[in-house]
Amino acid sequence: MDRAELVELLSPQGLSLLDSLPEWHSDDDVVRTVSDLRKAGHSPALVAAVLNQSKLRTKARAKFGEFADRMLFTEPGLEQATRLRVAALHAGRFARAGIRHVADLGCGIGGDALALSAIGLEVTAADADEVTAAIATFNLAPFEKTRVVHSLAEDVHLGGIDGVWLDPARRVASGGRTRRLADPADYTPSLDFAFGVGAERATGVKLGPGTDRTLIPAEAEAQWISVDGDVVELGVWFGAVRRPAIGRAALVIRGDEAHELTAPADSADAEIGPLGEYLAEPDGAVIRARLIGELAAGHDARMLSDGIAYLTADRPIESPFSRGFRVLERLPAEERRLRMALAERGIGTLEIKKRGADVDPAALRTRLRLKGDERATLVLTRESGKHVALLVERLD
């Protein structure tokens, strides 16, 4: 979104028109909607602006629920915005630590600032992009104790502010698209700046879940969060918002439930042992946090192979931190024989899961030439370093 589009959108006519539009369902709605709006006398620029926002609001409901219907967005801002439920957890940390004034540096469209403001904290939100700062101002307007400034994170005066939240921009716009930045020094603000702030005051830093673990300071708590099976972020916490004796954490959110696995540091991997009757696939947050050994210890489980994130046991591993399977039988790992085995069992629909196997499931499924009425799940992995193919059934 450019400045001119924002001006169109923020006009009384623009906001009224946006709120009057029906819910966006698909791009097929566009032609007729554009025609109707143009016949009503609206300018092409205004029509384009409100239709784009209508589409973004519909997309944003996955993160913001009904709040999305009264917010404004940019495409990159929505992409990087924290889900409101996760943002509420961030805000809760600051509140429990007794923090009363939080600076949200690199606030984007204001998702985290919204959660901080909603629980009564004073918030100073800043963004280096003028349009984005203006959108955050609109989204945060209902909160009297919140102000938004158009500023670089590095230039915000932190006197009197006892807590800081940073969500460094990890993407850059290029040719109408965004690309991920590989070097943390290129983040805005840089990772060095973010961690430097953390050395001085209560600070939380949101990073991508695949961030190089060697960059995490030893004095910080690192918490990976997954939502409905998708690992969405790594939070690095310093000072009063870091929890005592916790260095690694995996927070698993599924539906309305949340469960957390914690440890002082990375846990040692479980011992490697033979395949049992049951198999478990740890949640991605547990894998990222390197707490597979912690999970295994609580269920008398073992690893199938070194470096492979599957656990096996002789009884079901019932845990919110993993998905369980019953092993039905071993099948030949060699492709031709595997195809014959699946054909003999009349399997025409096959879910393929893999770890430690260099295979494209979609391409393999095509080569297997599946026929039949049966459905099945196939796990391709390693046992003690050797390739295995396991026919399994989900326990959930």
Score class of each variant (00 low, 15 high):
S35F: 10
A301P: 05
T33K: 09
V205H: 08
A280L: 08
G196M: 05
V102A: 00
S43T: 15
G65I: 07
E154Q: 11
S20L: 08
E318A: 12
A68G: 08
T214P: 00
E277A: 14
E277P: 00
E130W: 13
G41A: 02
R330T: 15
S26H: 12
V102I: 10
T211I: 11
P22E: 03
D396A: 13
G293S: 05
P264E: 12
R254Q: 12
F195W: 06
G160Q: 05
E144C: 12
D112S: 13
G229L: 06
A95G: 06
Q80D: 15
G210Q: 10
L370H: 07
T58A: 15
A313M: 03
R394Y: 12
L331T: 02
D69M: 08
L84W: 14
S174R: 13
R367A: 13
R38H: 14
P184K: 08
A169C: 03
D306F: 11
R337Q: 12
A40I: 02
G210R: 10
R70A: 14
L328S: 08
P142C: 07
V172W: 03
R85D: 11
D256R: 12
Y187T: 09
A268C: 09
G255S: 12
R171N: 04
D27M: 05
D36F: 07
L140F: 09
M340Y: 14
A376C: 11
K371V: 10
L295A: 02
P142D: 06
P217W: 00
L72D: 00
E260H: 01
T203H: 02
N139W: 04
F325A: 06
E200L: 11
A133Y: 06
M71F: 13
L158G: 03
D269T: 09
D256W: 05
P332D: 05
G163P: 04
A194F: 09
E219I: 10
E344P: 01
T137C: 04
R323E: 13
L9I: 00
H101C: 09
A182H: 09
V252D: 05
A153F: 07
R365C: 12
A68V: 08
A49W: 00
A60N: 11
E374D: 13
A389L: 07
V205D: 11
E23H: 14
G307P: 03
R336L: 13
D269P: 15
H90E: 09
E75Y: 07
R365F: 11
L364D: 06
G41S: 02
A263H: 06
V232L: 15
D212A: 13
A97L: 06
L9C: 01
S11H: 04
L9D: 01
D2R: 07
L311V: 04
K206V: 03
A296C: 06
A115F: 10
G159K: 09
L261W: 11
E79W: 04
A249I: 00
I216G: 02
A97Y: 10
I161Y: 09
L342Y: 08
T132A: 01
W24S: 01
L370A: 09
L105T: 07
P184A: 04
K145Q: 11
A357Q: 04
R100P: 01
G356F: 00
A270D: 02
P189T: 05
I99W: 00
H299E: 07
E154T: 15
I272A: 09
